[in-house]
Every structure is written in structure tokens, then in C-alpha cells.
Design a protein around this nucleic acid. Structure first.
Length: 511
RNA sequence: GGCGGGGUAGCUCAGUUGGUUAGAGCGCGGGACUCAUAAGCCCGAGGUCAGUGGUUCGAUCCCACUUCCCGCUACCA
């Protein structure tokens, strides 16, 4: 059986510095990538930057830089972010790279050759001040002047030569594709939106621009650059060496298993992208997941509201793993989520410090005082031990299913339940009252250590650094999912390593 | 306007293919313990499951209407 897994983040548009939304998409994708790796899959995890388009061209001009120079700087800040977030990405693609231009140009040529692209004119009511086209029913005439209904700004009839992609032709094939692949668009709530959009009819899509230069040149026509989305989406192919379809990476990893994206770019990924691919004779990806936004105090973060939480600042003051944990645990995946310092602090204190961190600490400390930090030489499980240890084996398939269904919340709920259960187990067994029964005392400690080991493996995709720190108790960095079904994995009669407190509690101001 | 999703404990959210006392975490009140980051464990308070009407032996879950919130309704990305 093929055990490859290709997962991507969006490629980020570097017209400004990275924000919480970028961090969120990346952390989620990294979570899946790390899980599939410990599950034994060969994973290709891709992220990068989308660097063409009018906005970039302008932003560069404002700063009196040439676009490439401008992109180099901002793309670097996204590349730096991958380190700050401890992403395990295998590659970082930039759409200004030669390898990408080759791929995008190739797709264009194929589409053109197959008659999927034709040259025509784009026309419509354009407002210069809004930088937007409006349809007939979005404008009104006041005193003989046409203007936008929404903004009231003056619109004028504009015609521009443009290449078009025959999107209309792909309406039916797309609908068929969706019904044959019911999991292609997730979550379901957003799938309905896409379906109704496609059902309502598709117009051919303008896929080139003449009004600016910063883009990939259309083959054999110097006046046009490719529409940024056709350019950008192709990154998922160029990173695995397309158009060299015989290449090992392409063979192993296409079609992609999962595109993680924000809900704002769902249409591009769920409609245009599969349409382009179907038209080019390439298989569409298996799944596109459009997650929600991270809000601050129930509102979108914005400078004017002064509610921006910068991921880098949060990490500097609270640490990376707490942020990763919070975003994965506290956000209902697929829906918009909320973050605030207060909520983050509560989460750190109750889940990470009191529950998980303290569990590790109490067992080590107990072992230090009673077993000289040695694991048992001999153990003898009783039913209480077996029944809690075997929970992992009993739920093994379910855990994998959670991940394959992108049911992140059920996954982490399982983990949290097990943390409570382990604490309860240690309490109920009262090892401090078993000092006269060394075998029993040793078995309780051993069992609890096993529980910690197992849950730490499940936590690894969420909080990788912390998990490795915990595994160092057992002098190992061996993290394999399959080992959670083993109840005697920790070496007997071995010295444990003491570790520092994992998460410090945050003192909160009363009132 | 059209299409779609949603309104469940103080807060954040699960859940019910209709069936005995509706769940979790956090927060709050009480208790027993002591290995631990005054952590953990146990017990408890707190909900007419948005409102009204209907189908049914029985509805939080199905249907209709009302009300409130949110998303999509194409070429900035």
C-alpha cells in the first residue's frame, strides 16, 4: 500500500508581514504533517509565498524598490516564520523561482494547446477609485452619471484584451467531480456554498492581465502576464517537479492529499483549481479544507480596532507550544475561532501546567523519592492498570480516523480525557500508601510513565518541542504512533531523566 | 432579494439516526487526600436545548411559521 502524504499550506501573499491567520494555517498543516509522519507515512509538506500581482508591484513601488527585491525581503519574513513556528515543511516554494515559472508556463501551454484558453476582450464597468469591476445590477445612474451602488464612486466602461479560460465548459464535470468525491471540499458547511456557486453557472475566467507587468509572462505574448491565481495554484505542482511527470516526487505525491487553506480562498481552490487541472488532464487534489479565521475579541483583527495579536509577540511572551496548543485545541476546526491573552493564559494554566505538566512532574518527583528514579525491574499489572493502558489500543483506529477526517477537536479531546484519566489513576492507586509493597508501587509508577509516554506521542504533532522534552525522561526521541498500543515499551530497570517544569503557571491578576 | 449554516449551563463548545435523571472543559461552592507547579481527586449548584404551533404514545432532535446571528451571491489576493 502506498504510504505517501502530500499536504500544503496556502502560499502566502507577501504584501504585508505575517499575521495570526498565516500562523494558524501553517500550524494546522504542520500538525497533520507531523501526525502522518509518526504514523509512518512519507510526507511532503509544502509552504511558500505567492509573489506576483498588481498589489505587490505597487507596494514595491511605494517603497521605491523593484518588485523582486521587495519580494525577497518579505518572503524571507515568511520563511523565518516557518522556523519560529517550528514547521516541519519539506520545501518552501516561491512563485518567482525558475522552477515555478517553468511549471506555470507549461500548464498554460497545455491549456492553450487543448483549446481551453482563448484570446478575447474583458469589459465591464470599472471604478478607478474602488479598483473593482461592477456588473450591470451593481451600478446606478445618477444625473446621467453611472456610479457604483455600494460605494457611489464613478464607474466607466472599460475594455481590455484578455485571455480567457473556458470555465463555463467545466461546470458539469466539476459537479460530477464533487459528487464522486464527497470529501473534496471540507468542512461540509462550506461545501454547500461552493456547490451553489457552481450550480448557479460559471462564466469563462479572465486569466491574463495587461494592466501591469509583475507576473509570469504569457507564452508568446509579451503584452500579457498570467492571472495570479493560475500562476499561484500551480505552486502545488511545481514544488514536486512538475512538469517532469516521471519524477519520483511527482509520482509519489500527486494528487495532493490535503490543501489547508483559509475560507476566504476556498473558491480558488475548490472551483478554479480542479477546473484548471481537469482541463489540463491532471488529477485534481483529494481534499481542500477551508478553515475559519482567528478573531480577537470576536472581531477581525485590524489596526484601527487595536486588537491585533501578533503571533511572533505571543510566542515571545508565552512560548510556541502554548500557542500551537491553543489554536488546535480551542478553535473549533472549520469555524472561526477566538484568541485573547486571557483565554490563552487560562488554557496554559489549566491544560498545560496543571493537567499535563503537573502529571509529568508528580510522577518523576514520586519516583525520585521512592524508586531512586529507576524504572521497575519487575512489574505485575492488575486489572486497573491494564484497563487504562489498553484504552490506546482500543481507540487506535479511531484516532487515525479522526486525523483522516480532519476531526482535530475529537483528536485532542481524546488526549485531554486521557490526561484526566492518568491523573485520576495515579490518585486512585495511591502509590504513597504502597511503600510496603514495592512491586505494586513500582507497577503503578511504571504504568503511569507508560500513560505519559503514550499521551506524549499523541501530543507530539501539536506541541513537538515539549513532547520531545518529555520523551527525554525515557532517554529517547523515538516517537512512533504504533508504539502507543504497547504497554511495556519503556525499558525496565533504567534510570529516568529529570526534566524541568514544562509549563510555568501564569500568575493572573485578581480583579 | 436568493441560497446555505446556526441560536444547547456564567463563558467556550459537544451531542441526540425522536425514548428513562441533556454532556465536557473553564469559572463558582463544598469535601477528603498529599506524590506534584496550593497541582490532582471526589461531590455539588447552574439549562422551560431561541420563540410559537404541528406530526407523534413521546421532540432539544422531524415539519411549518416567527425572531436574531453568520456565510456565499465571481475576476484584489
Amino acid at each position: 500500500m502506498k504510504k505517501n502524504y502530500y499536504i500544503t499550506t496556502p502560499i502566502y501573499y507577501p504584501s504585508a508581514k505575517p499575521h495570526m491567520g498565516h500562523a494558524y494555517s501553517s500550524i494546522i498543516a504542520d500538525f497533520f504533517a507531523r501526525f502522518k509522519r509518526i504514523q509512518g507515512y512519507k510526507v511532503f509538506f509544502l509552504t511558500g509565498t505567492d509573489e506576483h500581482g498588481q498589489k505587490i508591484e505597487r507596494a514595491a513601488k511605494e517603497q521605491k524598490k523593484n518588485p523582486q527585491e521587495f519580494c525577497d525581503e518579505i518572503s524571507k519574513s515568511f520563511k523565518d516564520l516557518t522556523k519560529i513556528l517550528n514547521l516541519s515543511n519539506d520545501d518552501f516554494i516561491r512563485t518567482t523561482e525558475i522552477r515555478h515559472k517553468k511549471a506555470a508556463t507549461n500548464i498554460w501551454k497545455i491549456l492553450e494547446k487543448k483549446g481551453e484558453i482563448y484570446l478575447s476582450k474583458y469589459s465591464g464597468w470599472y471604478s478607478v477609485s474602488d479598483e473593482a469591476f461592477y456588473s450591470e445590477d451593481e451600478i446606478e445612474e445618477v444625473n446621467g452619471v453611472k456610479q457604483s451602488l455600494s460605494s457611489g464612486s464613478k464607474v466607466e466602461w472599460v475594455e481590455e484584451e484578455s485571455y480567457f479560460f473556458k470555465l463555463s465548459k467545466w461546470q458539469k464535470p466539476l459537479l460530477e467531480f464533487y459528487s464522486k468525491n464527497p470529501d473534496f471540499i471540507l468542512p461540509i458547511s462550506r461545501k454547500n456554498e461552493v456547490l451553489s456557486f457552481v450550480r448557479s453557472g460559471l462564466k469563462d475566467l479572465s486569466v491574463s492581465r495587461k494592466s501591469f507587468k509583475w507576473g509570469i509572462q504569457v507564452p508568446n505574448n509579451k503584452d500579457h502576464v498570467m492571472y495570479v491565481w493560475l500562476d499561484a495554484l500551480t505552486n502545488y505542482l511545481s514544488a514536486i517537479n512538475y512538469p517532469d511527470e516521471g519524477n519520483i516526487n511527482f509520482k509519489n505525491f500527486w494528487p495532493a492529499d490535503l490543501h489547508i487553506i483559509g475560507k476566504d480562498i476556498l473558491r480558488f481552490h475548490a472551483v478554479y483549481w480542479p477546473a484548471f487541472l481537469l482541463a489540463a488532464g491532471i488529477n485534481p487534489p483529494k481534499k481542500v479544507y477551508g478553515h475559519g479565521w482567528i478573531l480577537s475579541g470576536d472581531q477581525k483583527m485590524s489596526k484601527s480596532k487595536g486588537n491585533i495579536l501578533d503571533p511572533i509577540e505571543i510566542i515571545e511572551s508565552y512560548g510556541l507550544d502554548p500557542l500551537r496548543y491553543y489554536l488546535i485545541k480551542e478553535v473549533s476546526f472549520g469555524n472561526d475561532g477566538n484568541i485573547s491573552k486571557d483565554k490563552l493564559e487560562n488554557c496554559i494554566n489549566s491544560d498545560l501546567a496543571n493537567n499535563f505538566g503537573n502529571l509529568c512532574q508528580r510522577v518523576i518527583s514520586f519516583s525520585e523519592k521512592n524508586t531512586d528514579l529507576m524504572t521497575a525491574n519487575e512489574i505485575s499489572f492488575i486489572d486497573d492498570d491494564i484497563s487504562i493502558l489498553s484504552i490506546y489500543e482500543k481507540n487506535f483506529n479511531r484516532i487515525i480516523k479522526y486525523i483522516d477526517n480532519q476531526d482535530i477537536n475529537s483528536y485532542i479531546n481524546f488526549i485531554v480525557e486521557q490526561l484526566f484519566a492518568a491523573n485520576k489513576y495515579f490518585n486512585d492507586q495511591e502509590p504513597w500508601n504502597k511503600k510496603k509493597n514495592i512491586l505494586r508501587l513500582n507497577t503503578i509508577v511504571y504504568t503511569t510513565l507508560e500513560l505519559i509516554r503514550k499521551v506524549t506521542i499523541l501530543l507530539y504533532p501539536i506541541i513537538p518541542d515539549t513532547s520531545l522534552k518529555v520523551m527525554s525522561i525515557f532517554n529517547t526521541s523515538d516517537i512512533k504512533l504504533e508504539t502507543i498500543i504497547n504497554n511495556e515499551y519503556i525499558k525496565k530497570n533504567t534510570k529516568l531523566k529529570k526534566i524541568d517544569i514544562l509549563f510555568k503557571k501564569i500568575e493572573k491578576n485578581v480583579n
